[in-house]
Write a protein that binds this DNA or RNA. Sequence first.
DNA 1: TGTACATCAGTGAACGCGCGTTCACTGATGTAC
DNA 2: TGTACATCAGTGAACGCGCGTTCACTGATGTAC
Lengths: 205, 205
Amino acid sequence: MAKSGYHHGNLREALVSACLRLIEEKGPTGFTLSEAAREAGVTPAAVYRHFEGRDDLIAEAARQGYEVFADMMEKAYGANHATALKAFEATGRAYLSFARQFPGHYVAMFESGISIQRDPHLSAVAHRALGVMEKAAMNLSAHIPADRRPPARMVSAHIWAMSHGVVELFARGSPGTKSPFPPEDLLETGVGIYLRGLGLIPADK
Amino acid sequence: MAKSGYHHGNLREALVSACLRLIEEKGPTGFTLSEAAREAGVTPAAVYRHFEGRDDLIAEAARQGYEVFADMMEKAYGANHATALKAFEATGRAYLSFARQFPGHYVAMFESGISIQRDPHLSAVAHRALGVMEKAAMNLSAHIPADRRPPARMVSAHIWAMSHGVVELFARGSPGTKSPFPPEDLLETGVGIYLRGLGLIPADK
DNA sequence: TGTACATCAGTGAACGCGCGTTCACTGATGTAC
DNA sequence: TGTACATCAGTGAACGCGCGTTCACTGATGTAC
């Protein structure tokens, strides 16, 4: 496009992209503002035209991530499913799929240490995303006899924990351990066993 | 003790402690070698008497963490339990308990990005620790009818994922979200439901 | 018990480096007439 | 269509700073006799 020396054209987005690439490569604290600027082909000082500093840049990356995440979750959940169970499983798959497709965003959102409350935009979109998980869990647990039904927020917390754990431990090569199983399988079977434990899947299926 | 200006007495350990405190406070990449030296009351140059550099220091912290972790897991598992199930549950509790008691070590081990293979000592002790989890899972799944028994390594991966997820998402205040439930409860109920799904706990218990 | 000497843990000065942030500036773009 | 001018995104030089790493050194400790 218009990359004629002066006037980058779309520097704001270019910086976010650079930030995401660097997060993917070196982790959320492993890069500098100057590095991001360099990656976008621009002087460090130019960054200040668009962001207040490094944290602000990461927060924007996280915000965009939550936006995409919320869309994916809503879409997965909203497609008309035969049962609440199917709908729930679809959101579980969407979670992992997001983490795989957008690792930089994922890290910015859940591992960068930026607070969800740092600005209202970020907070709003984060709640939209996490709300889908909870709603899916709520509808699902409505099928469990009321007297031994765990709170919906707890069910969603369990699933979230397992998903996050699979992503962190097995969907990245980080701890030098090779994953014993494909992360998709690991999550699918894990959630399956869990749901069977809730009495939502017949024991012999 | 002997902190008479020159000659610290036990600088190596003091540096590891400083490193752990800093990891707890600022994350695995959020501090510098000089900061650790300052925290131990010593010139940055003194660090090189004991470690090759920052990574080497973190690796030592992780190594010590794995050592303690392995001990705790072995002790929890080895206490004579009535059933394989009890033994398994005990190791699960030990995991969370370790993460709570030694957050700095936990981060150094699982979130610092240092490879388990960087030196043989580290690798050996890490395998000792992770081996306990696997053995517990193996003994446990021996109680499941062979034809619908998932591989033991998969069971231990599931439990590990859920444990790690609970620690990351709910046992720290990081993402600005307040935990909806105490992490201990979350893990205990989550694992309970999972085990019921495996057919190891009666459905109405 | 006392003295001479080897060992070695920690010092502090020095280096070159990249960082974040500021500032007055420059030059491309858009707009009014 | 052409010109004058306002806007504003990006420059580049400058600053002070803390970093990692090296080096010859110093002085406390342990040991041999």
